[in-house]
Amino acid sequence: MSWMHIFFALVLLPAIGVGMIRILRGPTAADRMMTAQLFGTCGVAILLLLSAGMGNPVLLDIALVFSLLAALATMTFIRRTWRGSGKKKHEYPLQ
């Protein structure tokens, strides 16, 4: 166990906690989804630091899954939720 890496992870955790304000306050839906993306990136960084700090290389695999699936929620949001319901304003394909 190295306390230094765990301390760095502890520094990164408030970055997640403060970002939650934007979920609660965000004017558009995309702002809220962007915050989820911030959580993904910060979560990967915290997992990498914890993996070095706790001496457990298995956590790298969890970070790999996190980064692999990070874009999935955002893309579903853009394609399914945020686009207007059925009205097509532009001709060139959005997806």
Binding site: S67, A71, T74, I78
Partner: peptide
């Protein structure tokens, strides 16, 4: 590999969000 995946995911979703905005 983790960094590369995060780069791809974040740039793709950033582009998608900006374009639909």
């Amino acid at each position: 590999l983790i960094w590369l995946l995060v780069l791809i995911a974040s740039s793709a979703s950033c582009h998608l969000i900006a374009r639909s905005a």
